[in-house]
Design a protein around this nucleic acid. Sequence first.
DNA 1: CCAGAAAATGCAAGTCATTTGCATTTTCTT
DNA 2: AAGAAAATGCAAATGACTTGCATTTTCTGG
Lengths: 148, 148
Amino acid sequence: MTRARKHILDILTSSEVPLSAQDIEQRKTIEMNSVTVYRTLHYLEAHEYCDSFPLTCSEHGTERYYSAVHHRTDGTCDHHHWFHCIECHQFIDLGTCRIDELIAGYEKELSVSVVGHSLSLTGVCARCLQTRDHSGNREHQGPPQAEG
Amino acid sequence: MTRARKHILDILTSSEVPLSAQDIEQRKTIEMNSVTVYRTLHYLEAHEYCDSFPLTCSEHGTERYYSAVHHRTDGTCDHHHWFHCIECHQFIDLGTCRIDELIAGYEKELSVSVVGHSLSLTGVCARCLQTRDHSGNREHQGPPQAEG
DNA sequence: CCAGAAAATGCAAGTCATTTGCATTTTCTT
DNA sequence: AAGAAAATGCAAATGACTTGCATTTTCTGG
Ligand SMILES: [Mn+2]
Ligand SMILES: [Mn+2]
Ligand SMILES: [Zn+2]
Ligand SMILES: [Zn+2]
């Protein structure tokens, strides 16, 4: 693990939401070429330190988002899926993957071996829904404030 | 519906697998600029004639794939999800979406409104698994032949 | 600690799916 | 058929991501 790799893994680990290569460039606090960011993300993903999924949204286009992976004591990976709000562009954690059984079913039905999967939801978050109800559609909000 | 739009919708409707913009360019039989292909796909998706999802694979990189949507009598859309073989790069139909309930659960739990979702599986198809077993990894195969 | 090998990084340039601006053509409305 | 609106073609741009290659950092064994 080089300095750059440790640093990016730290950023991913301490983030509560998936980050794009660009998000990481903004958050990094050591000098690093953007090419290195991409290469580092490939490295981290290949070595199961993180996983990723592609997401398209109106504001950011199609980008790949990365999040650190938690290894359980039995060695398996605890990967999460995400909801993305199409109004405020925040991610909401959907928790640990709940489609393992569904996938096992497909494997059996179709005699295939599933190696990876990508699932993401898009829609309107609770906060944006509320804003909609109250005052007729305001503009984008800032990030939600942590509760006092 | 213009000629171009009808034509592309025909291509999508008669295809058994999702197609990328490039796939469509290859299959089209009338003159049409590739920009028009993209614009037409946007149109068709916005009007619910088709839906799409982004997929990354080693051979084709990240591309968006489109498939015609089947409208049920009650007006709802019967959308499918897909498995993509990382060896022969074929799609396999996973049938009608089976995660509606899961999504409804998330909506309730998180008080969000889910507007769209993307799910795709990757792995090795039955045919490629078999090829692996028999002879130690052959190279890519052609498309599967229709059974006799 | 040190030399050499291997791996990682920076920089510049390239790739490639997709988008955009604008002039022209086609389609729609009256 | 005339004018307006929408669709299309062409050329150029965009933007995420990749690649080649020279340089620097890290690793490994002595
Ligand atoms: Mn999952
Ligand atoms: Mn679905
Ligand atoms: Zn929101
Ligand atoms: Zn296969």
